[in-house]
Design a binder for these strands. Structure first.
Lengths: 221, 221
DNA sequence: TTCAAAATGTTGCAAGTGCAACATTGTTTT
DNA sequence: AAAACAATGTTGCACTTGCAACATTTTGAA
């Protein structure tokens, strides 16, 4: 996974940050970063800590949109499309830097090797995010919970080239990710277990079928 | 909407394309571009014509993922995550150029103004795509067809700052975009009409309510 | 203008899902 | 170790939706 300063040594990184006129910001556990970010068009980079981009709908229900850890990058403009529904919360003491988006293209270091590397990294990261979104859309467009699960398993299995899937989050968050009711998902997982398609041990899921092709949906296997 | 060569004059554009060693490719109406693209990690740029990125699921059902017209840019790596399910079809005679992704960062023009502009445009385009994906996810995570429609209307209405929405596609494609059954969507649109929330004339939808907040869902208005 | 094809509208029904309410298990905290 | 909390499992039921089958309207080509 590319990070913003990949292949840029510490000295050049410091130099770049100086030129971009950034300063580290500190946030204490359980505080909101939103005030610092609102209205800005900036790139955020977590130097250390852990924060979550969350969505609060009118029920007050919170959904995790993205998790931000050490070396992660986020783009504030991607949060502004809906008014007050988004927030970023430092779940632990977190330090980050904010880089003004415009200034990235206005500095006088354009001929420097590390500058091009920086832009390349940023592009790579953004591309990666689009890819992740595409995957999720792929899953969300499936019509049934079963197909959503299988599509998800499929993607995870392909990604790691293995029939063993280690869930990167708990079942509550998985249901959120698939945008389905947790209980209904639990029911469907049970069905898949009973029908012998999967095996679940904690966060490890084993796929017991050979190949899954979306809508044919295992029945013919 | 940013395009790949925005703020780059024709002379510099030609120069850039020469340096990047690109050649225009021609595709006749109703032919697939896939063979040209497969396995490559490239940026595609439509000089003129019209093509569609489609997904074919195991039923043979085709879904339009993206529409590509004059000046549009696409990234081939975003198509490779699923094996053979994607295709790009020229729906009209289409000319495009393919730019090798790596070569973008390896050319010796890094200090040139137009090069930085080019990268900036590319980044901007990629960011825009992530934004579009985020919007669709926002919609797809709604639990009911009604809420999906209202979320969609909401986004469209905010975007253009108007209560009039002009659908950019027909109802078949809208149902596809929302990932719901067309007939069920039709039914729900009828309900919304009858309940006095919207008015439909052809592709123009008028929102008759003041504000929509996701899950409170109009009932309290 | 006529005809064919595509898009849109309609409806009954079975299947799938969200929701609520609760039980059970696992994990922290004091 | 006990208490408090969080995560997971379970189930009945009402409601929403996908599906199929068909009617009607619009569009585009001959």
């Amino acid at each position: 996974m590319t990070t913003l300063f990949d292949s840029i040594n510490t000295r050049n990184r410091e130099k770049l940050l100086k030129i971009l006129e950034t300063h580290p910001l500190h946030f204490q556990k359980n505080t909101s970063l939103l005030s610092m970010i609102k209205g800005e068009n900036s790139i955020g980079f977590i130097t250390h800590g852990y924060a979550q981009i969350i969505k609060v709908d009118s029920n007050g229900t919170k959904t995790i949109i993205e998790e931000l850890m050490d070396e992660d990058t986020f783009h504030t403009s991607l949060l502004s499309f809906s008014k007050n529904e988004y927030d970023i919360i430092a779940k632990e003491d977190t330090e980050l830097i904010l880089i003004d988006y415009e200034s990235i293209f206005q500095i006088e270091e354009k001929n420097k090797e590390y500058y091009v590397q920086f832009i390349k990294n940023l592009l790579q990261i953004t591309l990666k995010k689009t890819e992740e979104r595409n995957e999720r859309i792929e899953i969300l467009t499936q019509k049934t919970i079963r197909n959503k699960l299988l599509e998800y398993f499929n993607i995870m299995s392909n990604k790691h080239g293995s029939k063993f899937i280690y869930l990167p989050f708990n079942f509550i968050d998985l249901a959120d990710y698939l945008a389905v009711d947790r209980c209904a998902m639990s029911r469907e997982l049970k069905n898949l277990k009973e029908e012998g398609f999967i095996e679940i041990k904690g966060k490890r899921i084993t796929l017991l079928y050979d190949k899954y092709s979306s809508s044919e949906n295992l029945i013919n296997i």
